[in-house]
Every structure is written in structure tokens, then in C-alpha cells.
Design a protein around this nucleic acid. Structure first.
Lengths: 125, 125
DNA sequence: CTAGAATCTGACGCTGACGTCAGAGGTAAG
DNA sequence: CTTACCTCTGACGTCAGCGTCAGATTCTAG
């Protein structure tokens, strides 16, 4: 399939696909005239890449992780990398949960009908 | 306290503090000569801002949220905003958990001593 | 064979959260 | 008052992940 089809079938832009190639994340074949030719597996690959981007990973990190994820590369380095990224993500999740809890506190305070701008330690009786 | 002290006591750069002021996130007093003067509460404020940044919120969003979080502002708009952000964060957490699960799968596969580059559906006997 | 659509390669633009540098002025210690 | 350090205000630089535009080329339909 050509780049336009891959773009529409994955929902990412043509520009983004070319960018992925720049970053060595997804390197297609070329047809005689120099146009990119993607196989069917490219769809899944793009979606994986999108998922990783959405989780806040950088191109570089994704580039490092991809061989582990889809080719089952298994070296001490790759295992260390996987664990490091896993920990980073866990940490990021913790941060987000913290912030969400804080927002929840504010929300429940604001929904609390205890007249006006109440504080958390204010006890109605 | 002056900007340098606040910077060292919070761990953020002087430039960042000035940037926060540009974004109206933290507006200090000024002393005669025009130098910024921060109160003690600024430390907590900066840390809150940092936490929100770390969770991926933008300056604009933080600016909108701050009155709710620290001044207990309570309007229909502020409540809508809080809920929207809460949902965004929840969604982000879900994405991260997805990616982490995927990494975990790869990790456990790579730690599985089932010789070489095994696949998930490979059953040792 | 030809028109029109899709694709190609640069290359510059954009946004956000600062880094960094320059030149000038404020401030605390002796 | 001087010295040394801190701070000030622009203003340009950076990096990522694309958007966008231009001009040339390739592919497909009729």
C-alpha cells in the first residue's frame, strides 16, 4: 500500500508517516519511481507507535523499544531498557494519580453543598 | 525572598520562575529597585505548579485551575473545567497503563527462561 | 497519450517550556 | 565607596512532532 492509504487507514497524517521514517521507526520499501510501499503489518506498527507516543514516549525511546516489542530481542541491555521505561511510566502514572486525587479533593469540596467556599477541614454540624 | 533563593529552595531555575510570572502563574511583589520579592507561600505554589507541569498540564490549564485549587473558587465554569481535566488525566493514566502492560508482557517473556527468543504462545513441555 | 491525483524532496513555520547570552542596574559586605 | 554578586529586561536559541507550501515527478484512469 502507498502512503496515503496507510495514512487514512491508521488515522495519522502523511507527514507523520514520513517523519516516522526519518526517525527510523518505520522504513518502507520503495517502488521503481521512488514511492513508499508499506506492507500490511505497517498498520499495526503505526498504531503501536501512536500508542507509545500517546503515552509520552519520545521517538528515541520508541526506537529503542521497538526491537524488543516486536522482534523479541532479548539482551541484557534490552531488558534493562525495558525495565527502565517501565519504571519511568509507573512514576508518571503515580504523578498523574497524585494530581487527579488533588483535583478530586477540590471537586468534592466544590460539590459539597456546605454553603459557599468551604475548606476541607470544615466540619458541618 | 529574592528569586535566586526561591529557585534553589524549590529546585527550579530562575528562568522558569520568570516564565511562571509571564504566564501569570506566580506574580511576586517588587522591591524599590524592581527586584522580585516572593513570600514564603511561593515555595508551595511553585511545587504545585511543578507537579501540574509534571503531570503534563499546560500553563494555560494550570492558570485556569489554580484559582480553583488554592482559592476554592466555585462556579459552574470552574466545576466543568475541573471535571474535564480530571477526565483528561484519567484518560492519560489509562493510556500509560496500557503501555505499561504491554511492556510488562514483553518483559516477562524476555525473563522467561524458555530458551532464546520465545513467543507468548509458545508452550514448553 | 494525457489529464488529474498522489507522491516525492527539501525547507521553513509553529508551539511550549524553558536555556542562554548581553548589557545595564540593584544590593549587601567591608 | 567599592567590589562582587544578584537581578533586571529583552531577545534569540532549542527540541519534538509534526503542518504547510513549492516545484518536480510518478501513478492511474480513460
Amino acid at each position: 500500500m502507498r502512503i496515503g492509504e496507510l495514512a487514512t487507514s491508521t488515522g495519522v497524517s502523511v507527514r507523520a508517516l514520513r517523519y516516522y521514517e526519518e526517525q527510523s521507526l518505520l522504513i518502507p520499501e520503495r517502488s521503481g519511481g521512488g514511492q513508499r510501499q508499506y506492507g500490511d503489518k505497517a498498520v499495526d506498527r503505526v498504531q503501536l507507535i501512536q500508542t507509545l507516543y500517546a503515552a509520552g514516549l519520545s521517538s528515541r525511546t520508541i526506537l529503542d523499544l521497538l526491537p524488543c516489542v516486536d522482534a523479541q530481542v532479548n539482551t541484557p541491555q534490552s531488558r534493562a531498557l525495558l525495565n527502565a521505561e517501565r519504571d519511568r511510566i509507573t512514576h508518571q502514572i503515580d504523578q498523574l494519580v497524585q494530581v487527579r486525587d488533588r483535583l478530586d479533593a477540590v471537586i468534592s469540596a466544590s460539590e459539597d453543598p456546605a454553603g459557599g467556599c468551604g475548606y476541607a477541614d470544615e466540619i458541618p454540624r
